[in-house]
Simulated scan of single mutants.
Amino acid sequence: MRITVKLIQHDLLEDKKQILLETNALYDGNTLRYREENERGSHQVYFGDDCISFERKADVHTKITLFDDKDGESVVDSQYGKMYMQTRLCHAEKCDTYWSVEYQLIMNKEVVLHQNLRWEFTPVKNI
């Protein structure tokens, strides 16, 4: 199904919110696919029962995997090599009109990122 998605990022360490993008997307209930407006990167978000993952493919390839019952992993692959970080899912919500994921990235036992991502969905109306 074609939808419009708005991605809102809330940095919980600095208490800053911003809209990262609003674009058209493909949505099938568990997977969301969209491209950045400048066509530089493609995104795929999977929201399953026991695993959530989001991936950005561009000059820098990033994949974050989150689990309900255990820590996951973030992999950033760039021209400088691969960087790995531990991930921790704090809270997740999945409904027909939005997905919301609060998670942390941990490096050397320290939280380096704590954010909430919220994908809001609007059906594309046929003319």
Rank of each mutant, 00 (worst) to 15 (best):
G81Y: 01
N24P: 06
C95L: 02
E73Y: 01
G48T: 11
Q18W: 00
V111C: 04
N116M: 04
M83Y: 07
S42R: 15
D68E: 07
S78Y: 03
E36K: 08
R88P: 00
P123C: 11
V45E: 11
M83L: 06
N126G: 01
G29A: 01
S42G: 14
E39L: 13
H91I: 04
F54R: 04
E120M: 15
D59E: 13
V112G: 00
K17W: 01
Q18E: 09
M83F: 08
M85S: 08
G81R: 05
D50H: 13
R88W: 03
F54A: 03
K63M: 07
T87I: 09
K17E: 05
F67M: 11
C95I: 02
A58M: 13
T65W: 01
D59R: 13
Q9V: 08
A92P: 00
L117E: 03
F121S: 06
K57T: 06
Q115P: 02
I64V: 06
R33K: 15
K94N: 06
F47D: 05
T65R: 07
S53I: 05
V101A: 06
N116T: 05
L12P: 02
P123Y: 06
V5H: 10
K6P: 00
E39W: 03
L21K: 11
L13E: 03
L105Y: 04
Q9K: 12
A92Q: 14
L13Y: 03
L32I: 09
K94A: 08
W99R: 04
K6D: 12
K94R: 12
R118T: 14
E102Y: 01
E39D: 15
T65G: 00
F121N: 07
I64S: 01
T97N: 14
R33W: 15
N38G: 07
K109W: 11
F67G: 07
V76I: 11
V101T: 02
D28V: 13
R88K: 08
I64W: 00
V5F: 13
T65M: 05
A58D: 10
I19A: 06
H43Y: 08
V101I: 09
V45Q: 05
S53E: 11
V101Q: 09
T23P: 08
G41L: 05
T62R: 08
V124Y: 12
L13P: 04
T62V: 12
Y27E: 10
L66Q: 02
L89M: 09
T31F: 04
K63A: 01
N38D: 14
F54S: 02
S100Q: 09
I52P: 02
K109I: 07
R118P: 01
D15S: 15
E120R: 14
Y84V: 09
I52K: 01
S74H: 00
L21P: 01
F47T: 09
R88A: 03
N30V: 05
L89A: 02
M83E: 12
D71H: 11
K16S: 00
Q104F: 06
K109N: 15
L20Q: 03
E93N: 12
G72M: 01
E36S: 11
L66Y: 01
W119M: 05
V111M: 09
I8K: 04
Q115H: 00
N24H: 12
I3V: 14
L21C: 14
V60L: 03
A25T: 15
V76K: 03
Y80M: 11
T4C: 06
M83T: 12
P123S: 09
D69L: 14
K16H: 03
A25D: 13
H10C: 04
Q115I: 02
Q9R: 14
R33I: 13
L66M: 00
I8T: 06
Q104L: 04
